[in-house]
Amino acid sequence: MPVSSAKTLLLSCRSFNRRQRTLMVVALTTVCLLALLCGGLLLGEEGLSTNLTNRNMPPSLSYPLGTDWLGRNMLARTVQGLSLSFAVGLAAASTSAFIALVLGLTAALGGKRLDAAITWLVDLFLAVPHLVLLILIAFIFGGGITGVITGVTLTHWPALTRLLRAEVLQLRSAEFVLVSRHLGRSRWWVATRHLLPHLKPQLLVGLILLFPHAILHEAAITFLGFGLSPHRPAIGVILSESMQYLSAGSWWLAFFPGLALLIMVRTFDVLGDNLRLLLDPHSAQE
């Protein structure tokens, strides 16, 4: 369990300073997440095939998370589901961050009309309920994995865009930028040499913190049935499937995958918070 082990480690190494501890947490969470991803890739189709002699087995030593009504190993399915969520999250979060960067820079540097247009777009996207928008977009793009990634990508950029725009606006009026402009540097030069380095920590932390959002939304729309093919081991699919069997008493089908999702999301959260501590000039040297 990445979070709790990280915490016990934290308690036992009070002797380290804040920066060292933060670094350790970052390293630990990264390793956990990478292990999960690799686990999903290495497992492949293994353990997903049906095995009718071992149906509906509660958690045991040979099947730590039990088996489902077709005898499929729930541990394998959960790891597969999480790594699929991870991949979807990665694709969606990085594309979202890229869109946010481009729009944020354009809004702040591109003149009044462009700024008004982009601000209006941000307001529009923030005003529509997120899940509804997500479902609409996923539906328009024909569902499936493309639909899910496009949907998640196209709905997660507005908050970060707004943040980056404000940051650029503030930077633009900073004295060193003004001086640089008066010294005759081009807009492009100022944007790449002065603005981008300042935006890097915002962008990186923003990206990491988009992850849990993207993953939860992916799980939510696959749970509602707008996403992936229903036998694919995605966390949302696993959870919605298990609903049918809860009344029959198979509690482990929903409990462990749900817990695993919670832990993974929380791990990303911890990673993002600690990265912010490291990268933010105010707290970086504590």
């Binding site: 939860l216 939510a220 809860l246 009344s247 509690w251 749900g258 929380r266 959260d269 918070d273």
Partner: peptide
């Protein structure tokens, strides 16, 4: 931000447990 997500997770969970 993170609080909202935790609540969403909890909501998913409570939904999952409701029929039982």
């Amino acid at each position: 931000m993170s609080n909202k997500m935790i609540w969403f997770c909890l909501l998913l969970f409570s939904l999952a447990w409701f029929p039982i």
